[in-house]
Design a protein around this nucleic acid. Structure first.
Lengths: 360, 360
DNA sequence: TTGTACGCGTTATCAA
DNA sequence: TTGATAACGCGTACAA
């Protein structure tokens, strides 16, 4: 057992060749005679030699790994981001070091420490201080995702301005006048931009916006809390007739709360989200939302990190689309189509399009 | 900029001391005179010296990192697992290398490669082959989570048997006779155990179980698909009167689908889950489920990896609890209490109990 | 207290 | 094609 003692030198001695030869064989170099190659391979197989990562990293001055820094880790948004980034990195043979700030104070230090063991770092906007980003950027390439940055080497974001089109749609096309916004603008650059777009649309249409957003987090449970705050309190006449949520999760939580109270969506209250999660097209009514290419956000970021030194383009803003479904009052597009039954019922793990499930 | 050229030796030369002294200062050793200490610190500050991780790892023969291997990454379950593991590892100064199999074929190779750059590895059950686990276990400590294993050094799981109690409750206390099970037993050890417990309860109560489970994944969208399959097809009389879902996510998706179709839960159809996600207590009716200590599963695993060599206990099975709420037909416990409005409305990122939201 | 010298496991350069 | 030998950056006995 234990091959921790099986080093390159040890293999060399055992096979009666030089360390250099073992190194060449180990990495598949062709510059070695078949005879020696076989002899070395035999020893490698037999004793389970595996090149040490630190040795290799030290000699190559390269870690073969990227860092990924998030504020939190929960929810479909981060899951998707994580998946996209991880599979892109894996494709190029790079590993992923994950760091979640958990909104703790020592995050800056952790990030700087992380910088010494990766070749590049992706940092989600709103996670660490600009000072820390700048420090890291002196050592390795840094890309900020979902927000602008002038200290990182590049940043990748999505167009939150589509929320203005969404808001105009609610006001102009559906005649809503009492709109509410659920989200915490101070908590993230994305939500800030969405709240601003929400207000801009009010200005343009000459409608009075609510003085303040309903400041809640971005989890589905926050939507459920919002449902209680909006639906159970205040007279029916004072209730907003449309709620623009900062993301789909809260919108779904809100819808669930409304339906559970016997309210009708969109007749009694219209609801919209942001992201276009898979669930958005599966609920009834379908959730009107803004489609954001979350996975692409992650893969573009990963590619920027791994890109040759030639040049990192700088800024990238990915387009977003308004997706109209039933929850805003529009006719729900071909519902059965959206929910088409999969061809094979046994759509479990073996199915190519099976989503990785929650559990196990 | 760039401090990549600032090595320990370089600092030593610059400060006019020996490399050993710089090393001592760098790690805060007291065995150095205040005078030299200051001189060295000044140079370190000025030029932004940071010890190279590979150098240190090579010398100390320790990576200061753990590997975490999952089948997929989506859903609250994995988010929670990830968070728990990551924060526990961070607490001891260890970094986390993440590997998601995405159900790809080359996972075994990736895992074995990962093994050479971490001090220990946590592997979720059902992710990689036993052979690969055994190979890794020869090099470093391996703990399997959410499933048994006889090749790893230890495993940590939770008690899925409570599903039998849940099923009995539906049959005996609520008089349901036509039960369905949503989940893919072949897809994961946990679901296998839950399906078995579901069937065992039928045997014990002399009730005929369904011949097959409804084989779907574990995402919320699978629940929505299940809703379509169960509710839109077959005559009302053939419809099951209770659905036991393999996890909360599918149960919530199913509930959402039922409510969206104007059905009443639990009057028209009872629904149960597994996990006790936060949403389970927030929906109306509340979701009857089995509480599983997901976070503890992760932290226990992380602790086992970091534990001193003395001894890893071997197997750990964490207890689970039956949580009865309205979705099975029980009276929903103090609903407003569950949804109590937070004291401060601005419960965003700054709030200590704020959940990390989905987005940004 | 400080410095010297070696080892950690690998790759790369240069001769042979 | 093969083999010495020198980095790579740091920790640490050991000596001074």
């Amino acid at each position: 057992m234990g091959n921790s003692r099986v080093t390159l030198r040890w293999v060399a001695e055992k096979a009666g060749v030089s360390p250099a030869t073992v190194s060449r064989v180990s990495r598949g170099s062709t510059q070695v005679s078949p005879e020696l190659r076989d002899r070395v391979l035999r020893v490698i197989e037999e004793h389970g030699y595996r090149p040490s990562h630190f040795g290799r990293a030290l000699a190559e001055k390269r870690h073969g790994a990227f860092g990924l820094v998030f504020p939190g880790l929960s929810g479909p948004y981060f899951s998707e981001l994580l998946q996209g980034f991880e599979s892109e990195a894996l494709a190029t043979g790079d590993q992923v070091l994950l760091l979640s700030s958990h909104y703790r104070a020592d995050t800056d230090a952790k990030v700087i420490d992380l910088a010494s063991r990766v070749d590049g770092m992706a940092i989600h906007a709103g996670t660490v201080s600009d000072a820390a980003i700048a420090t890291v950027a002196e050592q390795i390439r840094v890309v900020v995702m979902a927000g602008e940055s002038d200290v990182a080497h590049a940043w990748v974001g999505t167009d939150n301005g589509t929320v203005a089109a969404l808001t105009r749609h609610l006001i102009v096309d559906h005649g809503h006048r009492r709109l509410a916004f659920v989200g915490h603008p101070e908590g993230s650059p994305d939500v800030t931009a969405r709240w601003e777009a929400f207000r801009a649309a009010h200005r343009e249409t000459g409608t009075a916006p609510p003085p303040d957003p309903i400041r809640l987090g971005l989890a589905q449970s926050d939507g459920a809390i919002a449902a209680r705050m909006i639906l159970d309190e205040g007279a029916a006449g004072e209730r907003p007739d449309a709620v623009v949520c900062a993301n789909d999760e809260t919108a779904l939580g809100l819808m669930l709360g409304a339906l559970g109270r016997g309210l009708r969506v969109p007749e009694d209250i219209a609801v919209t989200g942001f992201d276009d999660l898979q669930m958005a097209g599966l609920v009834r009514p379908g959730l009107t939302t803004v489609r954001q290419p979350v996975r692409e956000l992650a893969t573009v970021t990963a590619r920027l990190l791994g890109a040759p030194l030639d040049e990192v383009d700088g800024d990238t803003v990915l387009a977003t689309d308004l997706v109209l479904r039933g929850s805003c009052g529009c006719p729900d597009p071909a519902d059965p189509g959206t929910l088409r039954r999969p061809d094979g019922m046994a759509a479990g793990l073996s199915s190519p399009d099976a989503r990785d499930g929650g559990d196990t």
